[in-house]
Design a protein around this nucleic acid. Structure first.
Lengths: 113, 113
DNA sequence: CATGTACTTAACCATATAGTTATATAACCG
DNA sequence: CGGTTATATAACTATATGGTTAAGTACATG
């Protein structure tokens, strides 16, 4: 069997965001840099588990790591979310109700031809 | 304020969108309903694989199934994407460069107090 | 330089995911 | 009814994911 397909930017970003723990970590980082221990505090899981989640977020480019004494503070990098937001834009018209109603209306007009 | 959203809906939707095959299927469905065979045609994988991807998309509510003779046409339902879009909104200021620069500027002003 | 603090990595386990082939179901058509 | 078309499900395999505990690394400080 062929190795698993290469994970492009969108795939990696969506996958990183698919986990509620990771989304909570990102939310925490909106209020500024935090150490791994600080990030881990609210969660009922071990530090290595948090370390792994951070690694996923870093490899998706959503979090950046720096260095300060024995601390390795993480900071939010929302840039990859922009890719997602722009990808979503092509579907916006499909979920916006007003346009859905317009579609329906136009479809009805077509039927009456 | 950020509206409450079920983490499960977000997780399921993000996970469904994390696969390029599934995103391609959704893209195909923007041009209208399609049968499973039609959906499968551009892909170099078997029908059961496509069936599974469709199941994932359906369980995330991104695709709806109907029935017409021996066909089971699928149609796009973008509604869950709206949840994602709204979730992303809380990060928009973080990726918009102009605002980041403004933040930086305001921070600098604060420092000079 | 020994010890504590803040992580990270390794090894392991259970479950999920993405694919396969083979078989089953469902509807139409002669 | 029997065959064909369209799709679904089952059973299996390989790899990925999310957690654990235990051991390793990096820096700070007494």
């Amino acid at each position: 069997m062929v190795k698993y397909m290469s994970a492009d930017v969108l795939s990696k970003t969506f996958a990183a965001l698919a986990d509620p723990t990771r989304r909570a970590i990102l939310s925490r980082l909106t209020s500024g840099e935090a150490s791994v221990s600080e990030i881990a505090k609210p969660f009922s899981m071990t530090m290595p588990a948090i370390s792994k989640h951070l690694k996923v977020l870093e490899s998706a480019g959503l979090v950046a790591r720096s260095k300060s004494a024995q601390w390795r503070p993480r900071k939010l990098n929302a840039a990859p979310m922009k890719e997602i937001s722009e990808w979503l834009d092509q579907y916006r018209q499909h979920w916006e109700e007003r346009l859905d109603r317009l579609d329906l209306y136009l479809a009805k007009l077509q039927q009456n031809d």
